[in-house]
Design a protein around this nucleic acid. Sequence first.
DNA 1: ATTCATGTTCGCAAATATACGAACAATATT
DNA 2: AATATTGTTCGTATATTTGCGAACATGAAT
Lengths: 107, 107
Amino acid sequence: MNNKEYTQEQIYLAKLGKALANPARIAILEFLANRETCFFGDIHEELPIAKSTVSQHLNELKEVGLIQGDIESPKVRYCIKRDNWQIAKKLLSNFFEINDSKKCKCK
Amino acid sequence: MNNKEYTQEQIYLAKLGKALANPARIAILEFLANRETCFFGDIHEELPIAKSTVSQHLNELKEVGLIQGDIESPKVRYCIKRDNWQIAKKLLSNFFEINDSKKCKCK
DNA sequence: ATTCATGTTCGCAAATATACGAACAATATT
DNA sequence: AATATTGTTCGTATATTTGCGAACATGAAT
């Protein structure tokens, strides 16, 4: 059967890829994954872009479920969402598992 | 020190993310990773997009080094580039390793 | 020499992504 | 009440991505 459509998993993996497809977002995720302090200001301080742009990137990462943001007035604390983070990790590591028994015959 | 620039690794990870940021490219990579036959026509047959678009996606994946294409006239055989594939796998799996000892204090 | 089969390249249109500064919102502090 | 601090949202400009069909290229078969 070949209905020529993408599976939900393929679509989700692509979304995940999109979330990782910008160095600012990579830097944000690395920062959040390895620091204790993670207020908006701390993140912005690390990045060579305007705060409005940082806010946008944070929002995209929130939309895809990789981070969360909690208001601690007047600041906002951002964190990795561990459950989805683990799911993403697992999906990607599965994706990169190659079936060597069906190896393509290239030169 | 904080020069507010992205590291080469962050830039490469973002490129990798970009390569994965489209369901057609995800599907292509899955296909190549798990099949023996991997001519252009086989790939195109699996996808709901025009052949010119498939060709474009293949080219992007080639540019980022995840696949290679060998002409076997009149066909073209595409394959995963195993060395870069492993590098990508490793980089991403490292990326997703969280340093739990520095966990962010979220609610 | 034509024709066929297989892909690639080109030119274009539409959609999405990236970034900025200005303006705004919410709460704390004076 | 006024001001300061911290982020978000809005409007806009530019660049990139995605996709298509038409045209082209190449080698194989007739």
